[in-house]
Structure formats: C-alpha cells, structure tokens
C-alpha cells in the first residue's frame, strides 16, 4: 500500500499536550476524525508504549505512535500532530517529542511500501525540525509530499 494520504483533517498544528499519553490521544483523535480508526485505537497505541516502553520515539523529537491492525482500525491512515510544548516520552536519547506521527494499518501485508515512503521523508534530517516549525497544515503537506 502507498503511504496513507494526509489531509488537513489529519494534521494538528501546535497542539497542547500535558504529557505523552495526551499527545498520543490527540494523534488518535486525528485518525478518528478522518475515519481511519475508532476512538479505542488511541488507547491501543498508548498501551503499546506502556507495555514496551518509549521505543516509538524513533528519532530525536519524533514519536511514531501505532498499534497492530485490528477491529479498532477502519482504514489505513496517517496523522501528524505538532506539539506547542515538547513532551518527554521517557526515551533516553530522543526526548522531548515535538512531532507525533500516528499510523493505522488494516493489514501487515504490504505495509512496508508505505513505511519505505516514511523513510524517504524522514531520512532527511531537516524533516523533523521543519514539521515542528510548520505554521499550518499546508506547510506540513508541502514537506511530506515534497520528499515522498
């Protein structure tokens, strides 16, 4: 599958999150807003981090929140949340998080194609700071589409 399309509704700029759970919850709400996931998916993403630790902070300032495919996922989807104030996830090197990517996929089969597109975008070290500084959804869309 190609990388799920971002829409302005799946992008939240300058969100205020009190902690990492709140940040993940906001990203889950964005997936719900675009019809990609049921509200319970946010809890599943939070549970992944509770169970396995803050490994989802895969690069400085960036969390890739996700859970497994399942009944809470309605369609492949991607959401991006930038945080007004960075929040720590407890990661020893990559905290604090300024950008949360939330990914929902319906099936593991074929998802590596979209993951490869994410790698294309984020292997450019300028991407995360540029997203964190984006002033509106259009700016985020421009960054994400220019590099994919």
């Amino acid at each position: 599958m190609p990388l799920p399309a971002l829409t302005p509704a799946s992008i939240v700029i300058g969100a205020t999150a009190v902690d990492w759970r709140d940040a993940v919850r906001i990203s889950g709400a964005a997936l719900t807003a675009v019809g990609s996931a049921k509200p319970g998916y946010a809890l599943e993403m939070i549970r992944m981090i509770e169970n396995h630790g803050p490994y989802v902070v895969i690069a400085p300032g960036l969390a890739l929140a996700h859970a497994r495919p399942g009944p809470e996922v309605l369609a492949d989807g991607l959401a991006i949340v930038t945080l007004k104030n960075p929040v720590p996830f407890g990661h020893p090197h990559n905290d604090p998080v300024r950008v949360v990517l939330a990914l929902a996929i319906t099936s593991i089969e074929g998802h590596l194609e979209s993951i490869a597109e994410l790698a294309n975008i984020f292997n450019d070290e300028k991407t995360i700071p540029a997203l964190a500084a984006a002033v509106d959804a259009d700016a985020v869309l421009a960054i994400m589409t220019a590099l994919a």
Binding site: H52, V56, H66, R68, I108, A119
Partner: peptide, 18 residues
Amino acid sequence: ICGAGIGSSGILKVNAER
C-alpha cells in the same frame, strides 16, 4: 525487532536494506 512488528521495525528493515 519492535513491539508490534510493524512501523518501527519496518523502518529499521527498509533503512538497513538501503
């Protein structure tokens, strides 16, 4: 290896292959 076997481990796989 990651928690779900999707997402982060996928990125590691893709970038390791490159």
